[in-house]
Amino acid sequence: MSSEVAPEIPKGNGWEPNILAFCCNWCSYAGADLAGVSRFQYPPTVKILRVMCSSRVEPAFILKALNDGADGVLIAGCHIGDCHYIDGNKNAEVRINNTKKALAKLGFDKRLRLEWISASEGLRFSEVIRDFTEEIKKLGQNPVKEVKK
């Protein structure tokens, strides 16, 4: 698998995005664990914050993270139908999509992503992080950081 080969390490002092990932305890956090166990390498741009369910993520947490300079926020939960709490992820979906709409007005909507990653999808976890990192790189740094300076 890809993990056996050292990936290309970004050279120079290029800017690396900072991503905060809220992972649900049951699926996505375990998926991230599996990515680790399987040594599926992904960029060190993401920090994982464990919550019991994706539905626990309040829009305020996302706004706080973005206001504090996060370049991207990922919310990851169980696939629809697989939620440990029956349908918490459906609530999360509604909430995150509404937050996205609100963020769109500020041009921040692409910095927020919702993904369903199961406990068995270690490879997918690493792919999502890589993909999101690339996307954020295209968007550039969170403009809030400039303003705050």
Binding site: V51, M52, C53, S55, R56, V57, E58, H84, Y85, G88, N91, R95
Partner: peptide, 8 residues
């Protein structure tokens, strides 16, 4: 079960 859905 402590999911926190209601809290949010």
């Amino acid at each position: 079960k402590g999911c926190g859905t209601c809290v949010t």
